Amino acid sequence: GPMASDKRPRTAFTAEQLQRLKAEFQTNRYLTEQRRQSLAQELGLNESQIKIWFQNKRAK
C-alpha cells in the first residue's frame, strides 16, 4: 500500500542471525546498550536493526 515507504528497507536477517536474536530474546527481553553493541558486532548488524527487531518481537 501507499503506507509502505521505500525509505527503510526491511532487513533480511539470516537464519543464523535470527537464531541468535531469538536466543538472546529468551534470556533478555530488553537489551542494554552494551549487549546491543556486542550483538551488532558479533552478527555484523546495525544496532538500530537489532533494537527494532527487539521492539517488534516484544510488540507481538
Rank of each mutant, 00 (worst) to 15 (best):
T11K: 15
W53V: 02
E24S: 03
K51A: 08
K7M: 06
A15T: 09
S38K: 11
Q19H: 08
T32I: 03
M3V: 14
A15P: 13
Y30W: 10
R8A: 09
I52Y: 07
Q17H: 04
L45R: 02
Q26C: 11
Y30Q: 08
P2G: 12
L43P: 00
L18M: 06
E24Q: 02
A15H: 13
A23K: 13
Q19S: 13
Q55R: 14
Q34R: 09
R29Y: 04
F13N: 01
P9H: 05
R29W: 08
L43F: 04
L43Q: 01
F54Y: 04
F54I: 02
R29S: 06
S5D: 14
N28C: 09
A40H: 02
Q49R: 14
A23R: 09
K22L: 11
G44A: 07
K22M: 10
R36H: 04
N28V: 03
R10S: 15
N56W: 15
A40S: 12
K60Q: 13
L21Q: 00
Q17D: 04
Q49E: 08
W53T: 00
R36I: 06
Q17C: 04
L45I: 06
K22V: 07
Q26M: 10
Q49D: 13
A40W: 01
E42L: 06
S38Y: 11
A15K: 15
L21Y: 00
N28P: 01
A40K: 02
A12K: 15
G1I: 12
E16D: 10
A40T: 02
G44K: 13
E47K: 04
K7C: 15
F13V: 04
Q19G: 09
R29N: 14
F25K: 02
E42D: 09
Q17P: 00
R8W: 07
I50L: 10
L39P: 00
L43G: 00
E24I: 05
M3G: 11
G1K: 07
T14F: 02
Q17F: 01
L45T: 05
R29M: 08
N56D: 06
R20W: 03
Q17W: 01
F13W: 15
T32L: 03
F13S: 02
N28A: 05
Q34L: 08
K22Y: 10
R10Q: 15
L18R: 15
T11S: 14
N46V: 09
I52C: 06
L45E: 01
T14R: 03
R10F: 15
Q26D: 08
M3A: 06
A4P: 14
A59L: 10
I52K: 15
T11Q: 14
K7F: 13
L43N: 01
Q55V: 07
A4S: 09
R8P: 15
S48E: 12
M3T: 14
R58I: 10
D6V: 08
Q34C: 06
R8H: 08
K22S: 06
T11N: 10
A15G: 07
R58A: 08
R20L: 05
S38M: 14
N56L: 14
R29C: 07
A12H: 15
E47C: 04
M3S: 11
Y30S: 06
Q26W: 04
K7L: 07
L18A: 05
K51H: 14
Q37R: 14
Q19W: 05
M3E: 11
L45G: 01
T32Y: 02
L18P: 00
W53I: 02
G44L: 05
Q49V: 14
Q17G: 02
Q49N: 06
A12M: 07
W53F: 10
Q49M: 10
I52A: 13
A59R: 15
Q55P: 01
R35Q: 13
K22T: 10
R10M: 15
Q19V: 13
E16V: 12
F25N: 00
G44P: 00
E47N: 04
R8T: 11
E33S: 13
E24M: 03
L18T: 08
N56C: 10
A23C: 07
A12Y: 15
F54E: 02
A59Y: 06
Y30P: 03
E47D: 07
M3Q: 14
M3N: 12
A12I: 08
E33K: 12
Y30T: 11
L18Q: 06
S48F: 13
A12Q: 15
K57W: 06
G1W: 07
Q41T: 09
G1R: 09
M3H: 13
A4M: 15
Q55F: 10
F54P: 00
F54W: 12
A15L: 10
N28H: 09
R58K: 05
P9R: 03
N56E: 06
T14I: 02
G44Y: 04
G1Q: 08
S5L: 03
Q41M: 12
I50P: 00
T11A: 11
R10I: 15
G1P: 13
N56F: 14
L21E: 00
I50W: 01
A23N: 09
Q26F: 09
A15N: 07
K57D: 02
L21S: 00
K57I: 05
Q55E: 09
R20Y: 05
M3F: 04
E47S: 08
T14E: 02
D6L: 03
W53Q: 00
L39K: 00
S48T: 13
Q26V: 06
L43I: 06
A40N: 01
Y30L: 06
S5K: 04
G44H: 09
S38D: 11
T11I: 11
E33M: 11
E47W: 03
A15D: 09
L31A: 04
G44R: 07
E42K: 03
Q55H: 13
Q17S: 03
R35H: 08
N56G: 05
L39M: 05
F13H: 03
Y30H: 05
K57A: 14
Q26I: 13
Y30F: 09
K51C: 08
K51N: 10
R29L: 04
A12P: 15
G44N: 13
E16M: 11
F54D: 00
L18V: 10
A40V: 04
E16S: 12
T27A: 12
K51L: 10
T14Q: 03
N46A: 13
N46P: 06
A59V: 06
F25V: 03
E42G: 03
F54K: 00
F54N: 01
L39Q: 00
S5N: 10
K51F: 08
Q26A: 13
S38P: 01
E42A: 05
I50R: 00
A15I: 11
F13P: 03
E24H: 02
E42Q: 07
K60D: 04
Q37D: 05
R35T: 09
E24P: 00
F25P: 00
L21I: 03
W53D: 00
P9V: 04
L21R: 00
Q37N: 08
R58W: 07
P9A: 04
Q37T: 13
Q41K: 08
R29T: 05
I52N: 13
W53K: 00
I50G: 00
G44W: 03
A23H: 09
L45Y: 01
L39N: 00
K60Y: 06
K60S: 09
R36V: 10
P2S: 12
N56S: 07
T11L: 13
Q34A: 11
E33Y: 11
K22C: 10
S48C: 10
E16K: 14
L39D: 00
F25I: 02
N56T: 12
Q17L: 04
T11F: 14
Q55L: 11
L43K: 00
Q19A: 14
T32M: 02
I52T: 14
S5A: 12
N46R: 08
R35C: 04
A12L: 12
E42I: 07
F54Q: 01
R20T: 05
A59P: 05
R10D: 15
T27W: 08
K22H: 10
K22D: 04
N28E: 06
Q55C: 08
E33F: 11
Q55Y: 14
A15V: 12
L45P: 00
A4Y: 11
A12N: 15
E47V: 11
L18C: 05
S38N: 13
E33D: 13
N46E: 15
E16Q: 13
R36K: 14
P2D: 11
N56R: 15
S5M: 04
Q17Y: 01
N56V: 08
A59D: 10
T27L: 13
G44V: 04
T11G: 14
A40R: 02
N46G: 09
L18I: 10
S48N: 14
Q55W: 15
P2K: 03
R58T: 08
A23S: 10
Q17N: 03
T32R: 04
Q49P: 02
W53A: 02
Q26P: 01
T27D: 07
K22Q: 08
L31M: 08
A59E: 07
E33T: 13
W53Y: 05
I50A: 01
